[in-house]
Write a protein that binds this DNA or RNA. Structure first.
Lengths: 247, 247
DNA sequence: CGAAGGATTGACGCTTCTCAAATAGGGTGG
DNA sequence: CCACCCTATTTGAGAAGCGTCAATCCTTCG
């Protein structure tokens, strides 16, 4: 295991997600996934000096909506929930962040949503000012940032379609398939889909009540579409789930 | 009125929204609202030669999801609905575009949603290639594009919060307030809120059925919050609507 | 003036929510 | 290692909000 000081190796290892063992960008496992994939060897060395590796335990906040956006984060391990609240406490989770995801980029000077930790996080943190300065002169990087923003927008539109039009069963199935595919993209291709977030998180992501999420999952289990295991589900009939999730 | 050839002046004038009377960017009414607000006098002259003024009648499509993204459009008059469909025809409207809005910008080579006309449209159309080339060397413009993308993302998050968490009454009230404020920003500050889109459009925007939208509006009318007039509503108790819409 | 499409209203039903209780799981201290 | 506690999850019963189906009304436009 890594001996990086301050790195909570046991937690992170248990999470079974990739992370940056070395603190060196050139050896970063998630580099190709993230925005840093647009950097060449020279840029990488310079970028390394801008960032600091930081860690957050479960439930800690990376940042909160409305507060001055001082940093951008490049996630290298863990899971983060991104959300907004209504004044009376109703919560809409707008997404879950995984290694390779870039958080806090905005054209404005305040964060547009809150972010807190579901599963122990390691991240490469850069001040927004330094990051702006660094990226300004690198069209390659700017283009990649743009691509990431476009992708986020497309994901947001997908989610609007889901929230506005889909039934509870479709919502849950769509969530499972989407989450499975995201895990696969970061290298987690096991047959059982890990679900580090709580049922309440899933409910707030899908615009359902926690009871409906639970009932829908047990219904899927009765129908032999999946089995619920601790910490996740195992898909038995991926085809049926994909059909329910069809765009 | 203008005598620009091909300009459907009567339709556009009836719409009561601002538009580009002159075909000259320097005289464009919505320039300050749109992306072009980032251009100085010199740039403007060059930009003028890239664009072509085009018009679309109601129900015409500007573009369709998935098709190669050949153009970007800078709306100068009219109203456009932006949407995605599920295979079985369920539709989610992801937004309405007004003069000053920029459509078709994406980091990818295909449109991420469909766009068709609610109310006769005039737009400044530029090929994506020409636009990319033009913007590449203008950091000012790039930054503004970035700001617009960020704003769109924030709007998408607002809408996710609305779709996932709000009740029918809150949805309709939030829509009315948001639409009123957008009309105000383009100079339409009359007391009655024009609603050029159909009830079905509103329903598909809010994730409701058309009947629920209709019932909710009549409920608001019974409660003396507004009066329904042809082509819009007139707010009697804006405070109450704003309270229902509170973020 | 009549036809056609959009909007409203009513009756009814179903999906989903709410409230409440039971169960399971994970962590802690003895 | 086990018992206990705390929290998350599941399950049930009942209610309600919203959707569906269908009829009527209104507006627009030929």
């Amino acid at each position: 295991m890594s001996s990086v000081p301050g790195m909570q190796t046991t937690d992170v290892a248990r999470s079974d997600l990739k992370y940056n063992k070395s603190q060196l960008c050139s050896l970063c496992d998630v580099r190709s996934l993230g925005i840093c994939g647009a950097l060449d060897q020279t840029d990488l060395l310079q970028f390394e000096r801008l960032g600091r590796h930081v860690h957050f335990a479960a439930k800690e906040a990376l940042f909160t909506v409305g507060e001055p956006a001082g940093y951008v984060y490049n996630l290298t391990a863990g899971v983060v929930r991104l959300y907004r609240l209504l004044p009376d406490g109703r919560r809409q989770i707008i997404g879950f962040a995984l290694p390779g995801d870039f958080l806090g980029t905005t054209a404005f000077d305040r964060y547009g949503f809150s972010a807190d930790v579901i599963e122990t996080v390691a991240a490469c943190r850069v001040t927004r000012d330094a990051f702006s300065l660094f990226s300004e002169s690198r069209p390659h990087l700017l283009r990649r940032i743009n691509e990431f923003a476009s992708r986020e927008l497309m994901l947001a539109y997908d989610q609007m379609l889901l929230l506005g039009q889909r039934t509870a069963k479709e919502k849950v199935a769509t969530f499972l398939i989407g989450w499975r595919d995201r895990l696969a993209r970061i290298g987690d291709t096991k047959k059982t889909i890990r679900l580090p977030m709580s049922r309440q998180d899933i409910a707030d992501f899908l615009g359902l009540s926690i009871e409906t999420v639970s009932r829908t999952l047990t219904a899927f289990e009765r129908e032999k579409m999946l089995v619920i295991v601790t910490g996740g589900v195992r898909l038995l009939d991926a085809g049926r789930a994909e059909a329910l999730a069809a765009v």
